[in-house]
Nucleic acid binder design. Structure first.
Lengths: 335, 335
DNA sequence: TAGGAGTGTGCCGAAATGGGAAGAGCTATG
DNA sequence: CATAGCTCTTCCCATTTCGGCACACTCCTA
């Protein structure tokens, strides 16, 4: 046999009786996904058997299962923690005064990291968010990949506020969708900054900031219950270069000015100060300093390449919650 | 390929570099399980790769993974619900006034059912139990298999009270361990009835009931926050016959007296009344009627064979929470 | 009517599985 | 103290099952 799920030793014959139990009778459209996932993960049936039961073929079942894993319909969690990670969490808590620290083991392949930190974030948010909370959200791969891990729920007065403008160029996977998609999961109202993150120049930024809708959103952002932010670096595959938000020259110029990364698209130096640079004057986003009004700031970011930026962001934001990976945690713990 | 986990399209070579990331460095004893589970489910490595990394062989990795799934170290959940189940939940809520109803699809193989209902129960309890709560627990396969799904937590003043005596014959899998194992998960204090469920006769039962320790436990059971019970039937593979708690003659006699099942080892008729029978006078357990003092009674049980018993138990206990399967739910909904 | 998305089929190599056999470590017993 | 019995581990093998891929087909839309 070749399946990851346990199958008890007995081998009841499929007996080709496609008679369905009342329970798993066909329902509406995407019940199919639930049903297939259920049969596979809960009842440990093979994909072939499932194909028989739902009247389809393996390929489709396979596709559905892949999608189910991707969109969070099935969630796989390792509940126990590595002792080293637990140690690091304790160290960081006492050294920096964090209320909560979550340290995940750094994966061997760095591309997995945003996903892993993201799902940890999602799980944390799911149990942290209560009725009528207002939640401010940033951006980024880390945050985006946390969405599937946010548990779907009934409306309960939660509101989600996007802390930054969006992308103008709407790419297929728009990271600034994050707020909207998170709001969808939470059945929350969603307030978005209906403008690009980077205004053409400081003047138009000023104009937009005073715009009615935008001003309201930014105002809400000043009295948040939770603020979730990530940090960015200036590496070649940062969002800025990947989405063409900034030119190569601008990046260089920022580096010269001492920038080592960004928080909410505001570029900061290694001491956690927002640097003085023209690009920073064009940003349509809540200023990191304004997050002080939030009752709980959550910083979720990891990876060796972001170490300095994370260090700086901690100084700047003084978050209550930190979610990161063990490599970063090890280094920060000995600072 | 033959694995249940998605593997992204790229195939980075294993490169035989057994160099470990700092993060996943070796730790204490059962870190191994965590580590293996992590590598498998989070980093989508093959069992071979993992064997290399942790310095072992496939077989062991395989076994560790199986154990990890069994003991809840890795949890796989299907988060979406079948629409039919949601409908049934709503119907039952309005018809019987339950506060919460959870209906799971009936599996094709009935042996899976206790496990499925159990994990749903475990998940519910995990999010329901708060600091300093006192929780009364019954017994049974359903309840036992819920343990892995109870999230491990830090001590917070929770106390667990066993609502029944134990088995004298200690078999390998003692279902009356349930309370103790649940307490372990919850880092809770555990109060057990240190006596067999069935006393030899009514007189010795009386004597035991007045015993200091036992009386205290039974007293605690009268002021519970949560009471979790299941129901039993009189089928040939009920606990009573399987563990030889009652003789065949006694079962027959109980049936003649109108018994259709039991709640906390008290036999009841189809109207939900505890019947008048010698066996019921020998039970060392909290009386179902005494559960009225609990702030929330949770009834978790399912399966066609238990339908009548569940009906009766609902009348008797009037629980606030019902966890069952769709076959039972369908029937109860049209009562 | 042409394109495109979604579906059904078949095939292949890689992975996973459950035993079975051989070896190591431990216990109980003479 | 030695040895037979037992369990647990490790190693190996035959089968099943997976996941991806290529391709033909259908149904819907532009």
């Amino acid at each position: 046999m070749g399946r990851a799920m346990t199958k008890s030793t007995n081998d009841r014959e499929p007996t080709s009786e496609s008679v369905e139990t009342v329970s798993i009778g066909s329902g509406t459209a995407d019940d199919l996904k639930t049903r297939v996932s259920w049969l596979y993960y809960m009842e440990s049936k093979t994909q072939d058997e499932i194909a028989q039961i739902v009247g389809s073929n393996r390929s489709k079942v396979l596709r559905i299962l892949a999608q189910a894993r991707a969109d969070g319909t099935v969630q796989i969690r390792v509940t126990s923690r590595l002792s080293r990670c637990v140690e690091l969490e304790a160290e960081l808590k006492s050294r920096y005064g964090f209320e909560t620290v979550i340290v995940v083991p750094t994966p061997q392949d760095p591309v997995d990291l945003p996903g892993i930190i993201g799902s940890e974030l999602g799980a944390y948010l799911s149990q942290r968010i209560g009725p009528d909370m207002s939640i401010g959200l940033g951006w980024g791969r880390t945050l985006t990949s946390g969405i599937p891990a946010i548990e779907q729920r009934q409306p309960s007065g939660v509101s989600v506020i996007s802390l930054l403008g969006g992308l103008t160029k709407v790419s297929r996977v728009n990271p600034s969708d994050f707020a909207w998609r998170a709001a969808d999961r939470l059945a929350a109202e969603c307030y978005m900054v209906a403008a690009p993150v980077f205004a053409p120049d400081a003047a138009s930024r000023e104009a937009l900031m005073n715009h009615h809708g935008i001003a309201e959103v930014l105002d809400r952002a000043r009295r948040l219950d939770l603020a979730v932010v990530s940090v960015g670096d200036l590496s070649p595959d940062s969002i800025f270069t990947r989405y063409g938000l900034l030119t190569h020259e601008e990046i260089i110029s920022l580096e010269r000015a001492g920038a080592i990364g960004d928080v909410l698209c505001r570029f900061i130096d290694s001491e956690g100060n927002v640097i003085d640079h023209p690009v920073n004057d064009r940003v349509l986003a809540v200023h990191p300093a304004d997050l002080g009004g939030a009752r709980e700031v959550i910083l979720a970011s990891g990876g060796w390449s972001k170490l300095t930026a994370i260090r700086a962001a901690i100084k700047l934001l003084e978050p209550k919650v930190l979610i990161t990976d063990s490599v970063v945690a090890e280094r920060i713990a000995v600072d």
